[in-house]
Design a protein around this nucleic acid. Structure first.
Lengths: 354, 354
DNA sequence: TTGTATGCGTTATCAG
DNA sequence: CTGATAACGCATACAA
């Protein structure tokens, strides 16, 4: 394409680097100045219809495509936006990355993904890399960095951060209602008649972890039940920690009829732990997760969980960034949490009622 | 860091753009020419120890960090390498992406990930984007593009492609022995006494899909068993297709005691299908997957599968690219397939033997 | 070995 | 509205 059949003049694209067509060549072909071509391309100023037509034609005929690198040097904008995630291969963040890529690339931007490895120091280094690459903005998925540190980078370039609620100039935070989600999940178990509901917490230094624990406690309290620390096991959002937690729970001989894990991955680990101890889900114990990752539909049994709109989260943070970039103040809100009831929970059978 | 406490002279970094330090400033501070600084930075030429020391000191003191954008414009190298994957959120490719990122960034490069969406046309567009961004090379994970198309881009910039075996100038292909892996998996089932082994194939237009089917057939043949088309169900590497396949298999009333799915995701789907039909794994039917994705350790039961070293695959393709970039001819080989026996397979019980 | 001059492809700042 | 011309930050022939 672009090469067309009417390849008169110019002939075989010239030299190295794939013999690319430059803006100058377009300008010459269209009989205008390079500046005008640039203006047309960027809508920087109003140009007459005639010239515009000539330029458009030349661009099409020559198959011109702008060079983002040169553009970045000259204009300061690289049309690339940095994304710092925790682990690029996480089943959870994966969806968000896809949402970001889809949205951002549709607007002509390219995402630059870097993994923070769950470390504030590493994250800071990632952001330095991103800044040295002159990204136009940075999207931080959750992240471990202090709010203040983030606010500091927001002073120099637009920042969108998910998973926390904060305010700072040049920064927009997009948070999901983890509290409500956890409350919903616990309430579901309560509605099914469960009273002894164990909780496998996530990393409690992580805002999501904190909020989900809070939601669990709130639901319990609203139901007139006391908070029993013995039913709460620490985890770190990995399958392994879910497995360990459930083993400790069983070994503690504390009675429980249901488990709410602070994320799906831990729920999967817990499920395996239960399976190993010959406890069946949901026959013997009901199990609820959080996030609704792709594989939760196909786990055995399919997992009841709280839907976390990660793809939308990605889309929205990207949109927010795009708006920030044009100087608008984004006002976006994530959809509220929604419980997805599948097959890992069921009504408490009376005989086991304590 | 770099700012240090000894912030004498220069004072608060000057103007806009974060008031960055340029190479010229370093040159001036060190009392040498910009060219020399550039040469030191790139090892382009031998410079005297004195000047080098002065420059190093100036760089450290000023906290200079090169601008990749300018570097890209001037030198043609952007220190970024493009990666086209199929789906950035795939549990399978995720590991490879991590391997690539780790390796590439350790060498000072930044990966630019784009999703090909399983479409040759989309892939081609992705590569165009990458090229317009002047990446120094492209890593293609499997991909749908024709070999010839890939060879064509390899003419203009280094290409590393995984999941296929081909030869072309400027291109290195890194393939995994899918045939042997599938043979191993099938052999395992055979060793356990299974004779009626169903196969859920992957996309047969996909080289991996083809090879795995071939391995299955080869093992059967070596065991003196005929190939029964009725035992082979088509799939497309998704959980959903695995579920469907197993349902069709059961509905066909064809007898089988084991299933080999061409990837883990389909195995998970198949597992759920079996569960729904009240068939237990491995009690009633043994199940083997392929890839050994992270979650296969925690599936119920933990899945016996063929380990595919995806992370290493990512690392090696990155290394290969790095070598290509310095003009070396990479000679890397992936580790051979290895069967990971977990709990989804067991010896065939005589009573069910047909 | 080192410095000088030029160019990379665009955008931005000026005059016209 | 439009066209020269100067940055942008660095690398590289070329000359010294």
């Amino acid at each position: 394409m672009g090469e067309g059949g009417t390849g008169q003049g110019k002939g075989r694209r010239s030299a190295r680097s794939g013999g690319r067509v430059t803006l100058d060549m377009v300008a010459e072909a269209a009989g205008v100045s390079a500046a005008s071509v640039s203006r047309i391309l960027n809508g920087t100023a109003i140009v007459s219809g005639e010239k515009r037509a000539a330029v458009d034609e030349a661009i099409a005929r020559l198959g011109y495509v702008p060079n983002p690198v040169a553009r970045g040097l000259a204009g300061g904008r690289t049309l690339s936006i940095g994304v710092v995630t925790q682990a690029i291969d996480s089943p959870f963040y994966g969806g968000a990355l896809r949402g970001i890529e889809d949205t951002v690339s549709a607007a002509g931007y390219s995402p630059l993904f870097v993994s923070g490895q769950w470390s504030a120091a590493h994250e800071a280094r990632c952001i330095d890399t991103l800044r040295s690459r002159r990204v136009d903005g940075v999207i931080v998925l959750t992240g471990r960095m202090a709010d203040a540190a983030l606010a500091a980078v927001a002073l120099e370039l637009p920042v969108v951060v998910t998973g926390r609620t904060m305010k700072a100039p040049g920064l927009v935070a997009l948070d999901f209602d983890n509290f409500e989600g956890a409350r919903l999940a616990t309430q579901h178990l309560l509605n099914l008649g469960h009273r002894r509901i164990a909780f496998i917490s996530g990393d409690l230094k992580h805002p999501d972890g904190k909020e989900r624990l809070r939601g669990y406690r709130a639901a319990l309290k609203a139901a007139g039940l006391g908070y029993e620390p013995a039913l709460v096991m620490p985890g770190n959002f990995t399958e392994a920690s879910g497995l360990t937690a459930v083993e400790r729970l069983i070994d503690s001989r504390e009675a429980f009829t249901a488990i709410f894990a602070a994320n799906d991955q831990m729920a999967f680990g817990a499920g395996l732990g239960l399976h190993r101890r010959k406890l069946r889900v949901p026959h013997d114990v009901s199990l609820v997760g959080f996030d609704d990752v792709a594989s939760s539909v196909y786990s055995i049994p399919p997992l009841t969980t709280v839907h976390h709109p990660v793809y939308e989260l990605g889309q929205m943070s990207a949109q927010a960034m795009l708006q920030l970039l044009v100087g608008e103040l984004p006002t976006l809100a994530l959809p509220p949490p929604r419980l997805v009831v599948r097959e890992s929970t069921r009504e408490l059978q009376v005989l086991r009622k304590r």
